[in-house]
């Protein structure tokens, strides 16, 4: 008989205003748009490159992208501060309730939005419902070395801690959950808690301008909480009620 615990819970399990667990602060005043985070993310997470034609169709698979917009016209033209956009790990994520096979689910343990690749059947409902446009879809077998012999050597670099995704699967930023697990595992084996700043995500680790900070938002002592608490922080499309976990610092 089907009891209730067999049905996965959909959506957030915490009320509006409550904190999640992991969060990020990105200082737009410091971000130089140099793409080091994008390269670092792709190398850490086995993100596939898609080539010129497919990227022209908008199929490139960046898990993090740097947005910039123009204001005004020459000579009074200004580029808005660069804004790295990655999965906001919403507390109330629009992608989750629309996934038919429950591949986009909320992790109760880490308070992250998960994408379970083996469940994903590629309906792409989640990407259509994501207001941040941060979910990317594998339109082809970009990682199959039988189709692209170049990958026979390039795949030596793949991170064994991260699944290599295949065609027809949606994917997105995970807040480097493999690093979270590794740090937690190490801390547990040494009988302690994970310290603030002990590990960080690939993007934050690479960022030459130190614009990205990652950590526990439920710990008021952590660096990320203190930065987020400054009065120049804002969250993307917060008015939609998505409870994003990424805070952007604007201005100086």
């Amino acid at each position: 008989m089907m009891n209730k615990s067999n049905i996965p819970e959909v959506g957030a399990n915490f009320a509006e205003g409550e904190q999640g667990k992991w969060g990020m602060v990105i200082d737009r005043d410091l971000c130089t748009g140099c793409q080091a985070c994008v390269a670092a993310c792709s190398m850490e997470n086995n993100v596939a490159f898609v080539g010129e034609e497919d990227s022209g169709y908008g199929r490139s698979m960046h898990w993090i992208r740097i947005e910039r917009f123009w204001e005004g016209e020459y000579p009074e033209v200004k580029m808005t501060s660069q804004q790295p956009v990655l999965c906001q790990q919403c507390g109330h994520a629009p992608c989750e309730p629309v996934c038919p096979p429950f591949a986009a689910v909320h992790s109760q343990a880490e308070q992250l939005n998960l994408q379970v690749y083996n469940r994903c059947v590629g309906t792409r409902y989640c990407a259509n419902n994501c207001p941040y446009q941060v979910r990317v879809f594998n339109w082809r077998d970009y990682t199959d070395d039988r189709l692209d012999p170049a990958l026979v050597t390039l795949k030596n670099q793949y991170n064994p801690d991260v699944t290599v995704r295949r065609r027809g699967v949606m994917e997105k930023c995970t807040f480097c959950i493999q690093r979270i697990h590794k740090a937690q595992d190490k801390a547990k084996s040494e009988g302690r808690e994970v310290a603030d700043g002990e590990f960080t995500t690939a993007c934050a680790q690479a960022c030459p301008a130190n614009a990205i900070t990652f950590g526990r938002v439920d710990n008021p002592e952590s660096l990320v909480s203190q930065l987020a608490g400054q009065n120049r922080g804002s969250k993307l499309l917060e008015e939609l009620g998505t409870l994003p976990q990424v805070t952007y610092l604007n201005g100086g």
């Binding site: 080091a36 190398m43 012999p149 170049a150 026979v152 390039l154 670099q157 680790q205 690479a206 030459p208």
Partner: peptide, 21 residues
């Protein structure tokens, strides 16, 4: 020089190492 940081070109050095060509 870099205090733990890298640029995109440094990150992609592995695509030079394992380059098929």
């Amino acid at each position: 020089v870099n205090f733990g940081k890298t640029c995109a070109r440094g990150q992609a050095a592995l695509h030079g190492l394992y380059n098929p060509d």
